[in-house]
Simulated assay, not measured.
Amino acid sequence: MTKPLKASGFLGLATMMVVGLYQFTLLAGGNAVPGWMIGGHAHLGVISILAIVMGFAVPVIGVTGRLRTAVTGMFIAGQWGIPGVVWIGEGAELPFLMPTAFLWGICLIVSMLIMLYATLTQDSSGIGGEATGVTPADD
């Protein structure tokens, strides 16, 4: 279940990079980059990095079952919803979509609170996994 988080994170970073290149072409052509495009670009980049981190954190912390599904679904919804509502709401001039940013933000917050709960309630001996006895390479 963490594969969707990691995949969404990498797709988000690739999307953010494409948008960044488009912003560069606008600037190179002597045009200004709209503020809504910059804001969506920045949010997608940061939240996508966090999606990748979450993809590794969820199994390490031991989030399972419905909580794991909730964390994954809500985080991905928030990851794309926040920049999406900025790009579509402002960029496509559909301002009635802007209040949905609260919904996407709440999805991110709830997923973080579930991770907090899992962190505080799990047995601390399982955090980080067990030593494997394998000596790391020197390269």
Rank of each mutant, 00 (worst) to 15 (best):
I88M: 08
L103E: 05
L113Y: 08
G39F: 07
G81P: 03
H43Y: 04
D139L: 15
A101S: 11
T2M: 06
E130P: 02
L67N: 12
T15L: 15
A14I: 12
M17H: 01
T135E: 15
L94Q: 10
R66C: 00
P34K: 05
M1F: 10
V71R: 01
G129Q: 04
L94N: 14
W104M: 09
I76P: 11
L103C: 08
G55Q: 00
A32W: 01
G78V: 00
M17S: 15
L26E: 12
S48C: 03
L50W: 02
T119Y: 12
V19L: 14
G91N: 11
L116K: 11
Y117G: 11
M115N: 03
I61G: 00
A42L: 14
V110W: 04
G91L: 06
V63W: 02
S8T: 05
T15S: 14
Y22Q: 15
M74I: 08
L116R: 10
A137W: 08
V53I: 15
V85K: 01
H43C: 07
G128N: 10
L26W: 10
L26G: 03
D138F: 07
H41G: 01
G29P: 04
S8H: 10
V33S: 08
V33M: 11
W104Y: 12
P4M: 12
Q23E: 14
P34H: 08
G89E: 04
I47H: 06
A92T: 04
A70Y: 04
T25W: 12
L21D: 09
P34V: 04
A57W: 11
F24G: 13
V33K: 05
Y22M: 15
A92E: 06
I38D: 13
A57N: 01
W36S: 08
V33Y: 09
M1Y: 09
T64I: 05
I47F: 07
A92F: 14
G81S: 10
L97W: 01
G39L: 11
M17Y: 06
G55I: 07
G129C: 09
L50E: 09
F102T: 11
T15G: 09
M112V: 10
I52H: 10
A92L: 14
T135S: 13
A51L: 04
S111L: 01
G105P: 03
F102M: 12
I114H: 00
M112L: 13
V71G: 03
I52M: 10
S124G: 14
V46T: 13
A51K: 01
T72R: 03
K6F: 09
R68D: 07
T72Q: 03
A137L: 15
G78P: 08
M37R: 04
F10R: 13
G73T: 06
V86W: 02
A118Q: 07
A32G: 09
N31L: 11
I61N: 00
G9F: 11
N31E: 13
S124T: 15
T100V: 15
T72D: 00
A51I: 01
V110C: 06
L67A: 13
G45E: 12
V33H: 10
F56A: 07
P59I: 07
L67D: 06
G128A: 06
A57D: 05
E90C: 05
G55S: 02
A28Y: 14
V85I: 15
T15D: 05
G78Q: 03
G12W: 06
K3T: 13
T64Q: 13
